[in-house]
Simulated assay, not measured.
Amino acid sequence: MPAEQETVLDESAFLVSETDIKGNIRFANDDFCKVAEYTLKELMGKPHSIVRHKDMPKKAFKSLWDTVEAGDIWTGYVKNATKSGGYYWVFATVYPFQSCDGSKGYLSCRRKASQGEIDDAKNLYKLWNEEERT
């Protein structure tokens, strides 16, 4: 089985997506679509977990959801999956918000993570995944 292909973000890449309160995609910008390898049409209405990589520990997403559901801003490093089976790393910031129409949701903005940040996240997530298996 071939190794997964890593997509390394450009320094100027800024990935943005918006979801409803259940995590279903309502918007994704061109950078997000390009890196994740989906069209906007393919993403609309789908759970944001469509780009969740299998290596991400449940504990990381529990932290994210606990934080944003409490009305706070979450930041962290995320390994996401591409449509073709590859992956990419980002530093993500997720904001809870209320739209002009009164609907609530979450806005996620992501930038390139440095190699040092990725290495630190890999080590932490490896520990968390081992804890989840025991």
Rank of each mutant, 00 (worst) to 15 (best):
T67L: 03
P2D: 10
F32T: 06
F61Q: 06
F91R: 12
L127V: 14
I118T: 07
E131G: 02
K58G: 13
E69V: 09
L127Y: 11
K58A: 14
K22N: 12
S17L: 05
G116V: 11
N29C: 08
K104E: 13
E117R: 08
G71H: 04
V94M: 07
R52F: 03
A28Y: 06
A81C: 05
I118L: 00
G71I: 10
T82W: 02
T7L: 03
L15Q: 01
T67H: 00
A92L: 04
L9Q: 00
M44N: 07
N123G: 10
E117W: 02
R133S: 14
K126T: 15
T75N: 13
C33P: 10
L9V: 03
G102R: 09
F32R: 04
D72C: 12
V35D: 00
G86N: 06
E6N: 10
Y125R: 10
Y38T: 07
N29V: 12
Y87N: 04
A121Q: 09
Q115I: 12
G45M: 08
R111S: 10
D119L: 14
E37D: 11
K83I: 06
A3K: 15
Y88E: 05
G105T: 09
I50N: 01
Y106I: 08
Y88V: 11
G105W: 06
Y87A: 04
A113Q: 04
A92P: 05
F14D: 06
Y95I: 11
S99E: 14
I118A: 00
A36Y: 01
S12Q: 09
D101S: 15
